[in-house]
Design a protein around this nucleic acid. Structure first.
Lengths: 240, 240
DNA sequence: TACCCTAGGTGTACGGCGTACACTCTGTCA
DNA sequence: TGACAGAGTGTACGCCGTACACCTAGGGTA
């Protein structure tokens, strides 16, 4: 009995909200969002599930805490940089954080309401636009243009072959060329160019995600800069 | 006994994959994705949960079927239009489908692999770029630029006040002005402009989501058009 | 007519989930 | 010494997806 007390009070540091959040993030990092259960986290902590509820209100609050932890990893804005550099670098930092925690984007989108931390992050991004000379109105449009990319979301809809060897994937798409001719053309182009630059799959891992992300990001930032300097704040749609 | 047989064979049309999918979509439309359970769908059909498994392999396959149903509502590309119009109108059609089925975007993103229907849709969108004179390479970049917006995703991260009366939301953000100064400025601008144009909330429902979506869409399409006509297919990033 | 086969719907059960609620400790302070 | 509080436990409930054995009606065949 006495040894048990010793063991508990000495070797086991007490539970805390912070420790729970750290463990939860670790569990999700390892097993993905769907492996994250109260029982699983508790088990990792050597404790029973209900013990967690003495420190977090419920699972949703825990998810919010995990989100805030990820947002907290995003670097603060660069001091003294022009708006475009500041925006660009911070979004890339956000992307790095999300790549470290692949479960985060889905969890963030599953939550109905953003946490105060996310709202604060958004406000700070708005501040970068405002400081960069954007009107409040154009800043508003700019935030909608950036969308969830402002949090570093890369939203690849095409990761499906990532578990497949590159040559196998190429063969697969070639076989489906009559059904998906354009994808086949794309795969052919990429694999024909330099297949050696990435050992991942063809569409998804085979193309350079980081390059594509920055390409899209720069296109948007360039578009916004053009509007910022233009007399009329509205892009010329196809109707105009 | 005989009446029961009559009732079954006459008044109850037999189960089928189509009928299950229709019912599942209806349930999700009414109660959201989180209300969609096999038991709930079965109940709606006056049948026991396990009966569904004679027509769909499992819940994931059912979700795929539901996704395909939504994608199927997207209009085909306009014949004979220029690439920009075709792309713009089809994306707006996709957005309309997603607005009819608010659960769909989350379900699509939750699935690890896209369905053949989604792959086909993507291929067809690629075809619009190619027919519009894009190189395969630029088409590839363009697809990444559009991201999930190509499926009509609007990904509003700021719907949090949508259940709140506009004046209440304005007061709330005004009170938080020291913590979120830029959001407060935005809210002030919108509510100061014309508060009457929408009875929804301020950030989220209060701004014109449709306008913002088209604004962002046009900015991207304009950016892509510029690249299409330019000698170098790469946007000038802030590093250049 | 007697038979069986098959497709489709049923019932039960299992292991997982979030969490309500009542409990038992253990350390603190009066 | 004894009351108290705060932390961890144990049990239980109602959900979930779904495996598996069962029943039953309709249809084809001998």
């Amino acid at each position: 009995m006495a040894t048990k007390i010793d063991e508990r009070s000495r070797t086991r540091e007490p539970l805390s909200r912070e420790r729970i959040l750290r463990t939860a993030v670790a569990v999700a990092d390892k097993g993905g969002a769907e492996s994250l259960s109260m029982r699983r986290i508790a088990q990792e902590l050597g404790v029973v599930a209900m013990a967690l509820y003495k420190h977090v209100a419920n699972k949703d609050e825990l998810l919010d805490g995990m989100i805030d932890a990820v947002i907290g990893e995003i670097d603060p804005p660069i001091e003294g940089a022009d708006w475009k550099t500041a925006m660009r670098e911070r979004i890339l930092s956000a992307r790095r954080a999300l790549l470290r925690h692949p479960w985060a984007s889905q969890v963030i989108e599953s939550r109905a309401e953003p946490t105060p931390t996310i709202i604060g992050y958004m406000d700070s991004m708005m501040g970068i636009f405002i400081s960069g000379g954007f009107s409040v109105d154009l800043m508003h449009h700019a935030m909608h243009v950036m969308g969830s990319r402002i949090l570093g979301f890369s939203q690849e809809l095409f990761d499906e072959t990532s578990s497949m060897p590159a040559d196998e994937a190429i063969a697969m798409w070639a076989q489906l060329a009559d059904r998906y001719p354009n994808i086949a053309a794309l795969v052919g182009e990429i694999s024909g160019g330099d297949i050696s630059h990435d050992e991942g799959s063809v569409v998804g891992g085979g193309c350079d995600d980081q390059f594509e992300f920055e390409f899209a990001l720069d296109l948007m930032l360039d578009g916004l800069e053009r509007l910022r300097s233009a007399p009329t704040p509205q892009p010329a749609g196809s109707t105009g």
